[in-house]
């Protein structure tokens, strides 16, 4: 008897969400198969890779990242260099400086940075807040307003602040809403339900369902994404069919493997290689679990993951 391959065909699919405008516009999602199961059916638009930059500039970046941006003086320079990175599909600006427990930059100042970046590039833009829910609840609506017409994705609306961010980004200014929940399929679904109840179109929502570096509670990330993709495709659960975006760099560059210096951990070897490996492996694992887009920052990671995606679809 010859091998009888039984493809897993689904009539449901992940929603296709456009980011950006013009030639460099990208579409997230659209697939009707599990990640990279192209032998079963359509992979949709294929996973995308974003490059993370921060309003805090380059001071805190790893050496190789700094080296890549050498000569950049302004945020506009940095943004242009980011979009030119080999393998980059979009740019993600993190407004870390807004954190009230950190630099506590004003909303005006941060909106100006977002504008400067958005005007400098033609690639699609994702804007991430500072993770403080009160500040983000005020900041991200202002960013959405200032960047009208650019079709940006705002990360992110959470349980606590989805009303302000969802209404501004998804309704008033016609941007895309990032819905962020904490590694749990039910929480992810619930947030999509309430955001769409505001009147935001499901096609305007992208999910961040939680993330971690591999080895750091990542087991929950795998299972959450596995279960979400299964429910979206095999049960046609419309409230879980939003594409998934996963910030990787912000997690992986904060763990010991990517931080301990060579003096501190001589047996571990080259620090840059460790950081890249942590970022690349976490990104690969996330893509295989169901991320439709990953956000990275090291040029080698971006090139490698973009190449891997190309090879797999």
């Amino acid at each position: 008897m010859p091998f009888n391959c039984k493809p897993q065909k689904f009539s449901a699919s992940i929603k296709a969400v456009d980011l950006g405008t013009g030639d460099k516009k990208v579409t997230l999602g659209g697939e009707s198969v599990f990640p990279f199961y192209s032998f079963d059916g359509s992979e949709g638009n294929g996973a995308k890779v974003g490059v993370e930059i921060s309003d805090m500039g380059l001071d805190h970046e790893p050496e190789a990242v700094k080296a890549y941006y050498a000569g950049c003086e302004t945020m506009a320079d940095i943004a242009k260099k980011a979009e030119a990175m080999e393998g980059a599909d979009f740019v993600c600006l993190r407004l870390e400086g807004g954190d009230p427990n950190g630099a506590d930059k004003s909303i005006e100042e941060l909106v100006a940075v977002a504008k400067e970046v958005a005007d400098a590039i033609t690639a699609p833009l994702v804007v991430e807040g500072c993770k403080n829910v009160e500040k983000d609840g005020q900041l991200l609506p202002k960013v959405a307003e200032a960047l009208q017409g650019k079709n940006v994705l705002l990360l992110s609306a959470k349980e606590e602040d989805y009303k302000a961010i969802g209404a501004a980004a998804g309704l008033a200014y016609d941007q895309k809403v990032g819905a962020e929940s904490a590694v749990d399929i039910n929480l992810a679904k619930q947030l999509n339900v309430v955001i769409t109840q505001l009147g935001v179109k499901p096609e305007s929502v992208v999910m961040n369902v939680g993330t971690a570096a591999v080895g750091y509670g990542y087991d929950y990330v795998i299972s959450t994404m596995d279960r979400i993709k299964a429910a979206a495709l095999s049960q046609d659960d419309k409230m879980l069919q939003m594409p998934i975006i996963t910030p990787i760099a912000s997690e992986t560059w904060a763990v010991k493997e990517s931080m301990a210096t060579e003096e501190d951990a001589p047996e571990w070897g080259n620090l840059d290689a460790r950081g890249v490996s942590m970022e690349v492996q976490t990104a690969a694992a996330s893509l295989v679990s169901g991320s439709d887009a990953v956000i990275l920052k090291h040029p080698q990671s971006v090139a490698t993951i973009a190449k891997m995606i190309k090879e797999l679809i």
Binding site: A213, V214, G215, Y216, G217, Y218, D219, I222, E257, E267, W268, G269, N270, A273, R274, V276, S277, M278, Q281, T282, A285
Partner: peptide
């Protein structure tokens, strides 16, 4: 090498 092993074995342990 360690660069490859540290994330990989962490991932395996999680999985």
């Amino acid at each position: 090498d360690y660069a490859m092993a540290l994330p990989l074995y962490g991932l395996r342990q999680n999985l």
